[in-house]
Design a binder for these strands. Structure first.
Lengths: 212, 212
DNA sequence: TGGAATATAGGTAGTACTGCCCATCTGCGG
DNA sequence: CCGCAGATGGGCAGTACTACCTATATTCCA
C-alpha cells in the first residue's frame, strides 16, 4: 500500500500539531501540507499532490465550508473531511449540500478522524454519529401530525390525499378510481376543511409534506 | 445511577448470548429479557419494565422492523435500537420513518452497541457511521441536475424558481420583488420552456424536488 | 328504526397557473 | 453600431383547483 498524502488545515497551531500526530499515527498516512486558513488550503490542493483534505470549519480568511466548495470545484473527486467543534445544524446541512465526504466533531477527533480517513479512502463517507441525531429527530417530529391525519380522515380521503401527493390531478384520480371528478373534488374539499387548509395548492403542499 | 433494564432479541442463540455479554460489560446495564423473535420481543415489552430495546432485524415470526412499529405504538417513548447485518438502504429508510433511536451494523456491534445504548439513554440517537454514506450519496447524486439548471437558467429565473419551491404564488413573488405579476408569469413560462416541463403544477413540482 | 357519517354526483363562481402572442428597455459583445 | 439576451410589462384563451351550494344512496351505530 502506497503512502497517502494528506492536507490538514486549522488556524490554531497547537491543534494543527496535534492533528498531524494523530493522522501520522496511521502508518501509511503522511501530512504533506499544513494550512493555517481556507485560502492557504486551496493553494495547497492546487499545487501539491493531495489524496485527502481535512479542514477545520472555523478559520479566518476563508472558512472550511467556503474552502471545501472551491476545492471541490477544482477537483470534484477530492475526499474532503470537515472538522468542527459545534454540532450546528446549519453548517452540517451546508456540508451535505457541498458534497464533502466526512464530517467529524473535534470532541471525538482522535478516534473519528482515523475512521473518517479510512472510510473516504475506501470511497465511503463518514459522519460523527452524534451528528445523525437530528436527522432522526426530523423524521420523528412529523409523527403526531400523521396520527391526527389518519384519525381525522376517512380511508377514501386518505387514499385521495396520497394520490394528490403524487402530483395527480383531480381528473387523473377520478379516472383511476372510476369515480366522478366531482366526487374527487368534494373529497379534496372535505380534506382541506378537516385540516383547516386554505388557498391555492394548499392541499398539494400538505400532501407532499405529509408523505406517510 | 440506577440499573438500566434492557431487552434483547435475536433468533440465533449464540449471537444472543454474545450480545448479552457485550451489553452487561456495561456496569449498570442488565439484560432482563431475551427474545428469540419479534413477537416474543413485543410480549417482553408489554410485560416487563424495559428501559431500552435492542432488536435484530432478521428474525422469524415477526421481523425487527414490524416489532419496532408495534413496540412504539405500545410505548412511543421507548428507545429502540435495531441491529442488522446488511447495509440495505430500504430497511434503513424504513427504520428512520418508524422512528427508532439507533441503527447498528452487526459488524461493528461490539463497539457500536455500547455507543448506541449510551446515546439513547442520554436522549440522543445513534447510527453506525457506515450507514450515513448513502445519505451523503443522495445529496451528491442530484448535483449534476442542479448544475444543468444553474447553467440553463438566468439568475432572475433561479431566484423565482426558489420562491416557487417555497410555495409562493405568482402574486406573492411579484410583491416581494417589486415587479409585475406579468413579469413573474413570463419568467415562470421561460423556466418551464427551458426545462421542458408541461402541465399544471409542473413547475411547482420541479421546484420542490429541486431544492438547491 | 332513525339519525349520523360517508361516498357518490351535480351546479356555479372565483382565482391562479399555463401557453402563446406582443412590446419596450438595458447592457454586452462582435 | 447593430444584434442578441435578458428583464420588464401587457393581452387573452384555456384549464384546474378552491369554495360554497344541493341531493341521493349506503352503511353503521345507538
Amino acid at each position: 500500500m502506497s503512502t497517502v498524502n494528506i492536507l490538514i488545515a486549522d488556524d490554531h497551531p497547537i491543534f494543527l500539531k496535534g492533528l498531524k500526530e494523530v493522522v501520522e499515527a496511521g502508518h501509511h498516512l503522511q501530512v504533506i501540507y499544513q494550512a493555517a486558513n481556507g485560502q492557504d488550503a486551496i493553494q495547497g490542493v492546487a499545487t501539491k499532490l493531495v489524496d485527502v483534505v481535512i479542514l477545520d470549519i472555523d478559520m479566518p480568511v476563508k472558512n472550511g465550508l467556503q474552502a471545501a466548495v472551491e476545492i471541490l470545484q477544482l477537483k470534484p473527486e477530492m475526499p474532503v473531511i470537515l472538522l468542527t467543534m459545534h454540532k450546528a445544524k446549519d453548517a452540517f446541512l451546508k456540508a451535505l449540500d457541498i458534497g464533502v465526504m466526512g464530517y467529524v466533531l473535534k470532541e471525538n477527533a482522535v478516534v473519528d478522524v482515523m475512521y473518517a480517513i479510512e472510510a473516504v479512502l475506501r470511497g465511503h463517507s463518514y459522519i460523527s454519529p452524534e451528528m445523525t441525531s437530528f436527522l432522526l429527530a426530523q423524521k420523528r417530529s412529523r409523527q403526531p401530525v400523521m396520527d391526527n391525519v389518519t384519525t381525522l380522515l376517512t380511508s377514501s380521503e386518505i387514499k385521495i390525499l396520497k394520490m394528490v401527493g403524487e402530483y395527480k390531478s383531480t381528473k387523473e384520480i377520478a379516472d383511476e378510481l372510476y369515480i366522478s371528478e366531482k366526487t374527487v373534488s368534494n373529497h379534496r374539499m372535505n380534506i382541506t376543511k378537516k385540516l383547516q387548509l386554505t388557498g391555492k395548492n394548499s392541499l398539494l403542499r400538505f400532501a407532499i409534506e405529509w408523505k406517510q
